[in-house]
C-alpha cells in the first residue's frame, strides 16, 4: 500500500472532516445528479419522509394498542377476582363471568368462518386478477435461437454499435433483424471463435444459409400485439431513447431475453415521465406555450403521448 506522508495535524483534519460529513449526511445536490431528474427526486424524497412518518405512527399505534390490551386484561382479571369474592351471582351471570375459552367453539363460530372465507377469497381473487393481467406478458422470454448468437460478445465485448446490424432503427418503424449479408461483412474473415482452432459450428450456419439460399428463421423475442403501432425511428431518432431503456442490458446477454414487460401501462408510464427533447427547434413555440401555463417540464403526454389512437388505429 502506498504510504502517505501526512503530518498528525493533517490526519486530525481528515478525521474531523470525515466525522463532520458523516454527521451531515450526503449533500442534496449529489442525489439530484445521481437520479438525473429533479421532479423524480423531489417525489422520492417526499415518499421517503412519508414512509418514515408512517412507520413511526404505526409503532406508536401498536404501542398504544398493546397498552390498551394490557389495561383491559388487568381490568378483566381484577373484575373477575372481585366477582369471585362476592360470589352472589345468578347461574346465568356466573356462566358468563367464568366461561372458559374453547378453541373448537371459536373455530366454528360464524365470525371466524366469515373472516377466513373473506381472506381466502381475497387471496384467490388477487391471484386470478394478477394472473389475468399477466396473460400475454412475456417478461424474461428468452427463446433458443437457430444460431447461438451472443449479443454479449458482439455488442458487449467488441462494442459493435446496435445500429450496425439493426439498420432500420434510424429510419423505419422496424429496427430490422440483419440479413445474412450483414453477418458476412465480418464473418467472411472471422471464422473462428476466440481460442478455438476450428471453424465455429455456429458461424458455419451463416455460411450454410448463404450456400443453401435459405434465410435464417430467428425467433421473435419482443412481440407487440398487431393492434399496437410502435415506431423505432421516432423513439430512437426524435426521442433520443437508448436501446437499453426498453431492451435492457443487451450487451450483457448471451441469449436475448425480453427485459421489460411491454404492456400498455409500461408505455404510458414512460410517456408520462419522459421529457420531450427540445433541442431540435421543432418544439420551440410549443415549449414556450407550455411553459406559459405550466411549471412542469413538457413531457410526451403534453404533446398527445397518451392519446389512444397514437398507437391504436
Amino acid at each position: 500500500m502506498t504510504s502517505f506522508d501526512f503530518s498528525d495535524e493533517e490526519l486530525n483534519a481528515v478525521i474531523a472532516y470525515i466525522k463532520d460529513q458523516t454527521l451531515q449526511g450526503p449533500p442534496a445536490t449529489e442525489v439530484v445528479v445521481a437520479t438525473g431528474d429533479a421532479g423524480q427526486q423531489a417525489a422520492s424524497q417526499q415518499s421517503v419522509i412519508s414512509t418514515k412518518m408512517i412507520t413511526i405512527f404505526m409503532v406508536i399505534l401498536l404501542f398504544i394498542l398493546v397498552l390498551i390490551l394490557v389495561v383491559l386484561f388487568v381490568l378483566v382479571s381484577v373484575l373477575t377476582k372481585y366477582l369471585k369474592q362476592k360470589s352472589q351471582l345468578s347461574e346465568e351471570d356466573s356462566e358468563v363471568v367464568f366461561q372458559r375459552f374453547q378453541p373448537g367453539q371459536f373455530v366454528r363460530s360464524p365470525g371466524f368462518i366469515w373472516v377466513v372465507t373473506f381472506i381466502f377469497t381475497a387471496i384467490v381473487l388477487k391471484t386470478v386478477i394478477d394472473g389475468l393481467f399477466n396473460v400475454g406478458v412475456q417478461t424474461g422470454y428468452a427463446p433458443a435461437q437457430p444460431i447461438a448468437f451472443s449479443h454479449k460478445v458482439h455488442a458487449g465485448d467488441f462494442k459493435i454499435d446496435c445500429n450496425y446490424c439493426h439498420t432500420g432503427v434510424r429510419t423505419s418503424k422496424n429496427a430490422n433483424i440483419p440479413s445474412v449479408n450483414v453477418c458476412m461483412n465480418c464473418h467472411s474473415s472471422i471464422v473462428k471463435v476466440t481460442g478455438a482452432t476450428e471453424l465455429s459450428a455456429e458461424i458455419q450456419k451463416i455460411y450454410d444459409a448463404k450456400l443453401n439460399d435459405t434465410p435464417i428463421e430467428w425467433v421473435r423475442v419482443h412481440n407487440l400485439p398487431d393492434l399496437a403501432y410502435f415506431n423505432h425511428a421516432q423513439h430512437y431518432n426524435v426521442g433520443g431513447i437508448q436501446c437499453q431503456t426498453c431492451h435492457g442490458p443487451v450487451e450483457e446477454m448471451e441469449v436475448v431475453r425480453q427485459h421489460t414487460n411491454l404492456t400498455m401501462g409500461w408505455c404510458i408510464d414512460c410517456h408520462r415521465k419522459t421529457e420531450i427533447r427540445t433541442d431540435n427547434g421543432y418544439y420551440d413555440k410549443l415549449v414556450e406555450l407550455h411553459n406559459s401555463t405550466s411549471k412542469n417540464p413538457m413531457v410526451v403526454e403534453d404533446i398527445g403521448g397518451l392519446e389512444c389512437a397514437k398507437c391504436h388505429y
Binding site: 412475456q138 440479413s179 449479408n181 439460399d213 421473435r220
Partner: peptide, 12 residues
C-alpha cells in the same frame, strides 16, 4: 406463447 418467427432477407 406462440412462437413467432422473424425472417430477414438472405441478402437485403
Amino acid at each position: 406463447a406462440p412462437v413467432r418467427k422473424a425472417i430477414p432477407y438472405l441478402v437485403k
